[in-house]
């Protein structure tokens, strides 16, 4: 099942005043959205609304036909898979495999997604290892696998690639793309624009608890002025596309490589 996500005039916060002011946002089923913005702009608050860890003080949040305000996080977990920024708050099983199986077991799912999720993220080799014996980025991959194995229709990922090497990032991108193609909705909070370029079709920029920009990712990632205003620059593939006026307006690495194929190279200047 796939679900869209909708926020209607939502206010939300943590007690002392609202962090989000009157936010409305519609994410269609199968769409992939990246949330950008400075620290404290409200990205994580928005993400936490979707799993019911923050409750709206006004307005309505829906996931498909469910109003989140009537449901506990463990109920929402059937539709929303949330990957936290820091992995160490949830790992507890003796092996990576058992930990990845925990979510599906809580939801009463058969667990046939566990081996697939491990394989997808390159964790099959360490499936029998203790999660705490793995380095921090690998532990984060384990939490991601745990959420993928739950088979939710909406994925919410908070900084999923921080500290990852190129290969791990590729694995996450590929896993995410496969799901988006099958209709899963993705909401990604990330500072990593190269990852955003690979994974998202739409970019929403938050500023001071409100939506400041809502654009196609391809347009935003090629708009140097708009990015500079946020203290950002185009990711390398998009920057090359702009500098060389490459055909097809590439923003992803593969697109850029395709546009450069057949180029002639010179020896480096000494």
């Amino acid at each position: 099942m796939t679900f869209g996500v909708r926020l209607e005039r939502v206010r939300a916060g943590y007690g002392q005043g609202d962090v989000l002011h009157d936010v409305s946002l519609d994410v269609a089923a199968g769409e992939s959205l990246a949330l950008l913005g400075a620290n404290g702009a409200g990205k994580t608050t928005l993400a936490r609304l979707l799993i019911g860890l923050v409750r709206p003080s006004a307005g309505r949040v829906t996931v498909g036909d469910w109003d989140v305000s009537g449901r506990r996080p463990d109920e929402l977990a059937r539709r929303v898979g949330y990957v936290f920024q820091h992995a160490d708050h949830q790992l507890f099983a003796r092996t990576v495999r058992d930990d990845v199986a925990f979510g599906p077991r809580c939801l009463g799912l058969p667990g046939d997604g566990v081996a697939a999720a491990l394989e997808e993220l390159g964790l099959s080799r360490v499936a029998g290892a203790h999660p705490y014996d793995l380095p921090a980025p690998a532990r984060k991959l384990v939490t991601l696998a745990g959420v993928l194995a739950m088979g939710a229709g909406v994925l919410v990922l908070d900084e999923p690639t921080a500290g990852f090497d190129h290969e791990s990032r590729e694995l996450v991108v590929a896993a995410l793309r496969r799901r988006i193609e099958s209709g899963v909705t993705a909401v990604v909070v990330s500072h990593d624009l190269a990852f955003v370029a690979e994974a998202a079709e739409r970019i929403v920029v938050m500023r001071e608890g409100a939506i400041a920009t809502d654009r196609r990712a391809r347009d935003m990632l090629r708009d140097e002025d708009a990015l500079h205003a946020l203290g950002l620059g185009p990711p390398p593939a998009a920057a090359l596309g702009l500098r060389l006026a490459l055909s097809g307006s590439p923003v992803r690495i593969a697109e850029c490589v395709a546009a450069l194929r057949g180029a002639r190279w010179t020896a480096p200047a000494v």
Binding site: P236, A237, L240, I253, C256, L260, R261, G262, W265, A267
Partner: peptide, 9 residues
């Protein structure tokens, strides 16, 4: 990575 894939020596 882009340069290598695009044939840069």
């Amino acid at each position: 990575l882009i340069a290598r894939a695009a044939g840069c020596p």
